[in-house]
């Protein structure tokens, strides 16, 4: 069964149909890329999945359970982790503390007044950091991390509540080509090992074609393609509205 199943999802803003009746699904261990021109409705679509926006109609289910219209916090508790296009971390805290905060929330200790936060779930945090290769940097302030390391920290934070689905908004934006490949390889390794489903948006076609198991393409709120990378790449309509002649990205599959 699919981890995430989206059926007939739609949203309009002041008469403009931002997303119209789209349906797709993501399986366990699968990386699904969502691509399309700026303003095609990718962000709207994402925000309906994570609970930021309430769809006009349609349904979103997680492991068969209806999550349509739930608040972001409730969606998170049911196992949907998120990473952002521009990293969002707690700059005044160390790398370990960043993960500890997520764990404190996961274990519902946020309103606790007695222990020190730094004494809670340290080992659990270190284990998560080790999985993304950040163990050595646990004691550094998050504010001084290199960009690629911030992305890995975000991933560790997103994994803190053992999610079923990861929503990643342009996970490799602003990274050097090799770092992009490394980060996505790391993500792919973790999600396949644990059967997590991933939906990500991305502008770097090299990343998309190298790592996506499947691609869906949005244009003007409509789903115009859904298939394996090679098929999507060869689709004339996708080339016309989005990919162009292919001269500005690599050709390696």
């Amino acid at each position: 069964m699919s981890v995430l199943a989206v059926r007939d999802l739609a949203k309009a803003f002041g008469g403009v149909q931002a997303v119209r009746d789209i349906s797709f699904a993501v399986d366990s261990g699968e990386l699904l890329a969502l691509i399309g021109p700026n303003g095609a409705g990718k962000t709207t679509c994402f925000n309906m999945l994570n609970g930021q926006l309430r769809p006009d109609h349609g349904s979103v289910t997680l492991d068969g359970r209806e999550i349509t219209g739930l608040k972001p916090r409730a969606v998170w508790r049911l196992g949907v982790g998120r990473t952002f296009q521009i990293t969002a971390t707690f700059g005044s805290m160390t790398v370990r503390e960043n993960v500890q905060i997520a764990l404190i929330s996961h274990h519902r200790r946020a309103f606790s007044f007695w222990p020190r936060a730094r004494d809670l779930y340290g080992a659990e945090a270190d284990a998560l950091l080790a999985r993304v290769g950040m163990a050595e940097q646990a004691d550094r302030p998050a504010a001084v991390l290199a960009y690629g390391d911030l992305k890995r920290l975000e991933l560790a934070v997103a994994l803190a509540n053992a999610p079923r689905l990861l929503l990643m908004d342009e996970p490799t934006a602003g990274m050097a080509p090799k770092e992009r490949v490394e980060l996505m390889a790391l993500v792919a390794g973790i999600v396949r090992a644990e059967g997590i489903a991933v939906l990500f948006t991305e502008h770097d076609m090299d990343v998309v074609f190298a790592h996506a198991d499947r691609i869906i393409v949005l244009n003007r709120g409509e789903l115009i393609a859904d298939g394996k990378p090679d098929a999507v790449r060869a689709d004339p309509r996708v080339q016309q509205v989005y990919l162009g002649g292919g001269s500005t990205f690599g050709h390696a599959g």
Binding site: G91, S92, M93, E97, I104, A110, F111, S112, F113, A117
Partner: peptide
């Protein structure tokens, strides 16, 4: 304490 740490976290990044 966790309560204060969460406040600081929220100040740093409400989004996160």
């Amino acid at each position: 304490a966790p309560f204060g740490a969460i406040l600081r976290a929220g100040r740093d990044s409400p989004l996160r």
